[in-house]
Design a protein around this nucleic acid. Structure first.
Length: 394
DNA sequence: AAGACGGGGGT
DNA sequence: ACCCCAGTCTT
């Protein structure tokens, strides 16, 4: 589509485009705590948090995180456990693990200063092409164009690009166009303006072309009845649905939690032990066998304390939380996962996956939280039946 | 090139 | 119910 691209790429039109975009950004940008004074550390943290995560979700996490870890040195001193706890609920926990490693490297190799050049910043864990360009342009004013999901969408429509943006050739083309349009000397503003435009005006569905400052430059607007068909979206597979049994295993006034391995899903987080069951009808038996096999403990499985539905990107899960009582064994995980007996009220000191948090909240609401050892079996069974009140679509 | 990796909000 | 997000890393 060279001819399409050329339509906009003459210097006077590019200048007009830049002026319109920057003028719009000046008056329409949203308030964000990391804007204003470009502290490289603040920019770095915000950009990591903003990976695949919306501004409004990041905001409260960012404020708490910066209060807790105000500098690279503070972050470098922190344990992974502290950082994961601060990250709890935001997802993509590899970001927190990479932040922990990167902070250590920045303190040790760069005297606590975020690198200001592509070669050094790009090798830090968790910093890919987008984040490198974002930090370098916003914090250091370097002329590096960013290409994120917003920019891909804006450019696809602006230039009527119909290729799959996931393809290598399309990525190259996007990068070249962003580079060509970039306002030299104001790269940070330009990049943020493009992203802000994509996030608030040139949205995936029902873009506000009437409110767009650069609609007169937009080829999709001119040539298509509906610009929102771009960028070309590829067909998605449907997600499988799994049933997971988790045991809230009581031993006196303690309950058992197990830490997930560092790599993989929800890496480094704590959870109630259990696993995926093929047979939804035989969850209790599965759970008893599963904890025997993985942890070497004997349990008695009681009633369902709470049931939670939870959607991940690539699968869906119904999490069944069972009231269990301990009946012997050492609680040593066969794969070496750390096991810990904690008091129920101490769970807030550990980072849990969202689904397990909701399990805990549901148990507390229904007064089905694990009872002190003094409670008899009859007292427990006298309580209300399985709680499914937080189970959407059930 | 494709898949793994969370969670929330918009439509 | 489905879409997709201020992406990165691994295979």
């Amino acid at each position: 589509m060279v001819s399409n691209v050329d339509t906009l790429l003459d210097s006077s039109r590019i200048e007009a485009f830049r002026s319109a975009l920057l003028a719009w950004y000046e008056t329409h940008q949203r308030e964000m705590p990391w804007r204003g004074s470009p502290d490289p550390y603040a920019v770095w943290i915000s950009e990591i948090m903003l990976q695949q995560t919306r501004v409004d979700q990041v905001r409260p996490y960012y404020d708490r995180f910066m209060k807790r870890f105000p500098t690279v040195e503070a972050l470098g001193m922190a344990s992974l456990e502290e950082i994961l706890k601060a990250w709890e609920g935001m997802g993509y926990y590899a970001r927190a693990r990479n932040l922990h490693r990167a902070a250590g490297q920045i303190v040790e190799r760069h005297e606590g200063k975020i690198p200001d050049n592509p070669a050094q910043i790009s090798v830090l864990p968790g910093i890919g092409p987008y984040t490198a360009a974002a930090v370098l342009s916003i914090a250091y004013g370097r002329d590096c164009p960013v290409v994120d999901g917003n920019v891909v969408r804006v450019l696809s429509r602006l230039f009527h690009l119909t290729d799959d943006p996931a393809a290598a050739a399309a990525k190259k083309q996007m990068a070249a166009l962003a580079e060509r349009l970039l306002v030299t000397g104001r790269a940070g503003d330009f990049n943020q303006a493009m992203m802000e435009l994509g996030a608030t005006v040139c949205t995936p569905r029902q873009p506000d072309c009437g409110g767009c400052p650069v609609s007169s430059f937009c080829l999709a607007r001119r040539e298509l009845p509906d610009p929102s068909v771009l960028p070309r979206k590829q067909p998605r597979k449907q997600r499988p649905h799994h049933h997971v049994a988790a045991g809230i295993v009581r031993r006196g006034d303690k309950i058992l939690i197990v830490r997930r391995p560092m790599d993989g899903l929800l890496g480094g987080l704590w959870e109630f032990p259990g696993g995926k069951s093929e047979d939804e009808a035989a969850m209790e038996e599965f759970l008893r066998n599963d904890l025997k096999r993985k942890l070497g403990i004997e349990i008695r499985v009681g009633r369902v304390l709470a049931t939670v539905r939870h959607a991940f990107t690539h699968f869906e899960m119904t999490l069944h939380g069972y009231d269990c009582t301990y009946h012997g064994g050492e609680a040593r995980h066969r794969d070496g996962n750390e096991c810990r007996w904690i008091r129920f009220e101490d769970y807030e000191q550990y980072a849990f996956p969202r689904a397990h948090i909701r399990l805990i909240e549901t148990m507390k609401e229904s007064e089905g939280s694990p009872q002190p050892a003094s409670a008899t079996q009859s007292e427990l069974s006298a309580q209300s039946g399985p709680s499914t009140k937080n189970l959407p679509n059930a």
